[in-house]
């Protein structure tokens, strides 16, 4: 138990959570057919990146630069979610579905 506690509060614990979140996000993006489901996976991936930046910022550099990069990641994720949802709503109006496999207009 003590071992687990010290692992969770070390850099490795943060990196492990970040890697697990990243892997789950990749899995979510690859398996889901629903466009909103894919968006959920992308949010997980971006959050995993933020965790890694914050962890290195605390445990290795001791500076706040990593936190500022994590803040930028957060803002980019917000902008990305807004645009993606607008595209999804537009696509839903066009095709009456948000199945990503149906989005093949450009493929011809």
């Amino acid at each position: 138990m003590n071992h687990l506690l010290s692992f969770s509060s070390s850099l490795q614990g943060y990196l492990a959570v970040g890697a697990i979140l990243f892997a789950l996000g990749i899995f979510c993006v690859l398996t889901r057919k629903n466009a909103i489901g894919i968006l959920l996976g992308i949010e997980l991936i971006l959050n995993a990146a933020g965790i890694n930046f914050v962890a290195f910022s605390k445990f290795r550099t001791g500076l706040i630069d990593g936190q500022i990069v994590a803040l930028f990641i957060m803002l980019i994720a917000a902008a990305e979610a807004a645009v993606a949802l607008a595209v999804i709503l537009r696509f839903y109006r066009l095709k009456q579905t948000i199945d990503a496999d149906e989005a093949s207009i450009l493929r011809n």
């Binding site: 970040g18 890697a19 697990i20 990243f22 892997a23 789950l24 990749i26 899995f27 690859l30």
Partner: peptide, 14 residues
């Protein structure tokens, strides 16, 4: 296949 790929990427990243 996605599961194997995600596990591999996560492990490599860590």
């Amino acid at each position: 296949l996605p599961g194997v790929l995600a596990l591999g990427i996560g492990f490599f990243l860590y």
